[in-house]
């Protein structure tokens, strides 16, 4: 890694937002939205309109999401809280473009994601969303740098730039010296930091964290939450899914889900008052 930035003390990293690959009309539109979104904090990033997700279980229809409407603006830190079976995971899958709703519309950065094909969804995930999973979901046979490089690789970014950006991302979470290590050589907290680095590498519009502290002890959990706050303070939009109201208290806005419906949506202070 000779070409890497030697200035390790700085936390502010300027990414080159111009992507080198050829852009389709659609992508260009998306980029426009992205520029707009990052340009003006407060602009709508996520808009869910009457989202239904219905699973057929035998003769019964299970309404995992039962008419959810929600707007999240650029720069927000939102916690989606709900008990197991409340439908919050289904909602996260839809927000994360991992799944499409049975009915309703979902706009992410102005693009209608509701009825995209598999490959279009993959493209949206790649360009706009950085995932942080409960189980970290690092690939065990790749070293840290290669893990962080993955989303950039799927974006079609060349090897040299990929390495540079991935290394900067690792620096951001303070693990640049361990880039050669394999994930299983790290502690849980460190692995989660690598997965944060991976989420950041593609410079996404949205960071989607699914129970990010679920597999961590309370101390490292706090560190990770602190990190998310820091990222939010830098202007990143964060949506965090959790079952634990006390974790949700770290966010700025809480959306509570119960039986597939939103039962509360408001500032964290107001949420604190009701629990």
């Amino acid at each position: 890694m000779n070409d890497r930035d030697d200035n390790k003390n700085t936390n502010i990293i300027e990414y080159d937002t111009a992507k080198p690959r050829e852009k389709s009309e659609k992508q260009r539109t998306a980029d426009k939205f992205k520029e707009k979104a990052s340009g003006r904090p407060g602009e709508t990033l996520i808009e869910l309109r009457n989202i239904y997700k219905i699973y057929h279980m035998g003769d019964e229809d299970v309404r995992a999401n039962d008419g959810i409407s929600l707007k999240i603006n650029k720069g927000e830190f939102v916690a989606i809280v709900g008990k197991s079976g409340s439908g919050k995971s289904t909602l996260m899958n839809i927000i994360g473009a991992l799944d499409v709703p049975t009915d309703g519309e979902y706009y992410l950065g102005g693009e209608d994601v509701s009825d995209m094909t598999d490959d279009e969804l993959a493209d949206i995930r790649n360009r706009m969303i950085g995932f942080i999973f409960q189980q970290y979901n690092l690939l065990p046979k790749l070293n840290l740098l290669e893990n962080v490089e993955l989303p950039l690789q799927y974006a079609g970014i060349g090897a040299a730039e990929r390495k540079e950006r991935a290394m900067k991302s690792l620096e951001r979470v303070g693990l640049e010296k361990k880039w050669k290590n394999m994930p299983n050589q790290l502690s849980g907290g460190q692995q989660q930091r690598v997965s944060i680095a991976r989420a950041l590498a593609g410079d996404p519009s949205l960071i989607l964290a699914d129970e990010p502290t679920g597999a961590l002890d309370s101390k490292t959990g706090k560190e990770v939450l602190g990190f998310l706050k820091e990222l939010n303070a830098e202007g990143n939009t964060i949506v965090m899914i959790t079952h634990d109201p006390s974790i949700a208290m770290n966010s700025k806005r809480v959306v509570q889900i119960m039986d597939g419906k939103i039962t509360f949506d408001g500032d964290v202070e107001k949420y604190a008052a009701i629990i």
Binding site: G96, L98, D118, D119, A122, D123, R125, N126, R127, F131, N137, L138, L139, L150, P151, Y154, A155, R198, G202
Partner: peptide, 16 residues
């Protein structure tokens, strides 16, 4: 399967 899931989540298309 899990590896494939991770790769797809990170944006790997079917063809990849």
């Amino acid at each position: 399967t899990r590896e494939i899931g991770i790769r797809k989540a990170l944006g790997a298309k079917r063809s990849v």
